[in-house]
Computed example of a mutant assay.
Amino acid sequence: MADPRVDRVADRVHTIIEDIFSSLEEIRVAAVACYRPELSTSDLVAIRPQIFGCLSRSPDVLAGAGLILAPGVLADRPRWLEWWQAPDPTFLDVDLNPDSLDFYDYTAAEWFAVPERTRRRHVVGPYVDYGGTDTYMLTLTTPVEVERRFLGVVGADVRAARFEELLLGVLSACSAEVALVNAEGRVVAANSPRRPSGSLLPVTGGDPLPSLPWRLMSIETTTHAG
Results as ranks from 00 to 15, higher is better:
T118E: 13
D88K: 11
W214Y: 09
A33K: 12
E184P: 05
F103M: 08
I47L: 08
E116Q: 05
W84T: 04
G53W: 05
E18L: 12
V146K: 02
A33T: 11
P115L: 03
R117P: 05
L171G: 01
E25R: 13
G205H: 14
E164T: 14
W83S: 01
D134Q: 11
T222Y: 09
I20L: 01
V32K: 11
T90I: 14
L168Q: 13
L180C: 04
A75H: 11
T139I: 07
P193N: 05
S22C: 05
A109L: 13
A156I: 06
V170E: 15
E184K: 14
T139K: 07
L180I: 12
S40L: 04
L74P: 10
S218W: 14
V181T: 09
L168Y: 07
M1F: 11
R186K: 14
I16S: 00
I47Q: 01
V154P: 00
P37I: 10
M137E: 10
S211P: 00
P89S: 02
P202K: 08
Y136A: 12
N191S: 07
E145F: 06
D207H: 10
T221D: 14
V188E: 01
R194W: 06
D7T: 13
G206A: 07
V73I: 15
C54W: 03
D105G: 07
L138D: 03
T221A: 12
D60L: 10
L44F: 04
R77H: 15
P202D: 07
